[in-house]
Simulated assay, not measured.
Amino acid sequence: MKVILSACSLTLAALGLFWVFGLRINATASMPRGVYLLAPGAPERGDLVSVCLEDGAFATLALKRNYLRPGSCPNGLEPLLKRAAGMPGDHIEADQDGIAINGRLWPQSRALSRDSLGRPMPEAENFGSRTIPEGLALVLSDRHPGGFDSRYFGLVPMASLRKVEPVFLIVPKGE
């Protein structure tokens, strides 16, 4: 029992140090799995970003369905890693094909009705056709059609975005 408690304590301490030094771990399929480092500067369109979910209902769903694990965000979850797909002033249009940003369809951005385990997904954010207002951003996965991102929980505050850069990526065979 002491060995298990010691191992758990060491693991938690290591994760705490990772966080303090700006390292983020991504174990989900929505972005390349691996270790990322917080980078200086304000995020720009196309940058990889770390973002904490603020909405209680979506945070609860993400934890309940294991889309996110407990972590260091103010709501107690780990941060999401996504692409800053749309920034203030960008025009977005959503339809059955996905989300177009400034006239270009974002890859694999069609909202799905069910997740990979067949559970119903929350109704997709109805962006319609509009301009992203100041202070908000659209974050999307660009490599996984089932990414839990802005197509479900909507626009996120720019202030919550932190730019990240990959440090070590785990590349599956065949990629």
Results as ranks from 00 to 15, higher is better:
125 E>C: 10
45 R>Q: 14
147 G>S: 13
96 Q>L: 13
18 F>S: 01
100 A>M: 09
52 C>L: 11
173 K>F: 11
110 R>F: 00
23 L>G: 13
38 L>T: 14
85 A>L: 12
164 V>W: 01
52 C>M: 10
41 G>Q: 07
175 E>V: 15
164 V>L: 06
35 V>K: 01
28 T>W: 02
61 L>F: 15
164 V>S: 06
141 S>C: 03
149 D>Q: 11
31 M>T: 13
46 G>W: 04
129 S>I: 13
160 S>M: 12
101 I>W: 00
41 G>Y: 11
70 P>R: 11
163 K>D: 04
167 V>N: 05
25 I>G: 04
87 M>C: 05
147 G>W: 08
39 A>K: 07
156 V>A: 02
10 L>F: 02
143 R>H: 12
160 S>C: 06
38 L>D: 15
2 K>A: 14
103 G>C: 02
127 F>H: 05
167 V>P: 00
27 A>H: 13
101 I>P: 00
44 E>R: 10
92 I>R: 01
159 A>P: 10
118 G>E: 12
69 R>E: 14
73 C>K: 03
38 L>A: 15
87 M>S: 01
138 L>C: 02
57 A>Q: 10
159 A>R: 15
19 W>H: 14
46 G>N: 06
98 G>K: 04
136 L>R: 08
24 R>N: 12
105 L>C: 08
97 D>V: 04
5 L>M: 09
100 A>T: 05
72 S>I: 01
160 S>R: 14
36 Y>K: 06
59 A>M: 07
62 A>Y: 03
18 F>A: 02
61 L>M: 13
19 W>L: 05
89 G>N: 08
90 D>G: 03
151 R>A: 01
6 S>P: 04
126 N>L: 09
54 E>R: 14
23 L>Y: 14
32 P>S: 13
105 L>S: 04
155 L>D: 04
21 F>P: 01
109 S>T: 04
79 P>E: 08
133 P>M: 08
39 A>F: 04
54 E>A: 04
157 P>M: 10
152 Y>N: 03
36 Y>N: 08
152 Y>G: 00
101 I>Q: 00
70 P>C: 07
2 K>M: 13
50 S>I: 06
98 G>H: 05
